[in-house]
Design a protein around this nucleic acid. Structure first.
Lengths: 224, 224
DNA sequence: TGACTATTAGAGTAGATACTCTAATAATGA
DNA sequence: TCATTATTAGAGTATCTACTCTAATAGTCA
């Protein structure tokens, strides 16, 4: 593997494990067993590494989040999107952690991420539309659909942050990838009241499979 | 005003303006025109300052987020809670920005914030229950209510982060406090499908008042 | 082979950053 | 008044961090 790719790979791993803020360029070089000079030969600076990782992430999402406009969708279609989205979020999980700071230090990233966000929102709306056209969801008004899509986005992109704050430990282990999928439960909760009678039971059953094991997260039922 | 309080006040201001990560203890001292030694006489370290600000924030929330259990709620009750919550989020807006990092560096903060989260979730559920009992919302199942409360929490606590990422500029100016309130629109969107017929129009009208001026945020309607 | 380019090592640096230490000054209270 | 405590100044420091510079080495291709 090319040095450049190894740098990206190791950076991603260290960022994910320790958070971007705690990982310096020297750490990355040391972990790889290369010199700082070598690292800076391949990347102008740390920001450049992060930007390249974002490009990878975007490419990943672009690869699977292609919602067809020429046919209606099935429940399975949506489940595939949801599973894929959460897998991507997990794989590049450092990214949404320090997102705000990253965006303030890199104008280019800010613009590209902004565009990426709106593209994703468009795809989310296409999913909702596809489910409406299939008679799975009751139709939304245009504005309601837009607001709904935004809520889906908020829940999806911030579920992991919530998990981290809600767990007693900082919870960065492999268990968490499974827990992350419980975000799907939350997304499906958003759709619950819009389900048509013919599909309610099916969707509710699927949703059940993702129900959070809140015992892990929540304190023992304490009479608040 | 006592030096200790001035330190907290100035720290909050600088954190809000520049982000916790970009504000050093030396900056705070310089801004106040006091010596670093003086600052460290009042606070053991930066973490200690942040923790004290969290205590302030929590006290603020505790003061207004007291949902009565002995009577049903009105729509106005909920609007008061929502307005107050977003005001609080704005006033201590640095906090949710770097939340994840802050929680990893301060065990005490992590535990207290976790407890705070669950208390807030309990109050959100009490609001939903109060609206159900008042016949404003169709009743949720217990689990649905729980998941719904969690979604409300996710939308409320992350709306600001979304705004910052979605605006072309980093948007930290006073305009943003008004935009922040548009999060209320998103929260009310969550409730929309649960509204009973008798209250739908009233709530929908109120919600309209908070509709995002997305022109500010979104790119000119571009054919995706 | 030899000239040229691509890659790498590694020592080094300017600037931060969080925090300490000592001594001076103010406030307080007997 | 004077002893004691609370507060403050400000110089200083160990450590870190992102990044640079030079020289060596490896690869390529005519």
């Amino acid at each position: 593997m090319k040095t450049r790719d190894r740098i990206l790979q190791t950076s991603l791993q260290l960022f994910n494990e320790q958070g971007e803020r705690n990982v310096t360029t020297n750490h990355i070089a040391a972990e790889l067993g290369i010199s700082p000079g070598n690292l800076y030969y391949h990347f102008r600076n740390k920001t450049d590494i992060i930007y390249s990782l974002f490009i990878q992430y975007r490419a990943l999402v672009d690869r699977y989040l292609r919602v067809p406009r020429d046919r209606t969708l099935t429940i399975e279609d949506q489940m595939f999107y949801l599973e894929s989205v959460f897998d991507g979020l997990w794989y590049y999980r450092f990214f949404h952690r320090d997102l705000e700071y990253l965006l303030t230090t890199d104008e280019r990233l800010r613009m590209d991420y902004r565009e990426f966000t709106f593209q994703c929102l468009t795809e989310v709306r296409a999913v909702l539309q596809g489910l409406e056209d299939a008679g799975i969801l009751h139709p939304h008004s245009d504005q309601e659909q837009e607001a709904m899509a935004l809520n889906v986005w908020l829940v999806v992109t911030n579920w992991m942050a919530f998990l981290k704050t809600a767990r007693a430990d900082g919870g960065n282990d492999a268990t968490s990838q499974q827990e992350l999928k419980q975000g799907i439960y939350q997304v499906l909760t958003l759709q619950l009241p819009y389900l048509t009678d013919s599909y309610y039971d099916q969707m509710a059953a699927i949703r059940e499979r993702y129900r959070p094991q809140l015992s892990r997260v929540q304190p023992e039922a304490e009479g608040s």
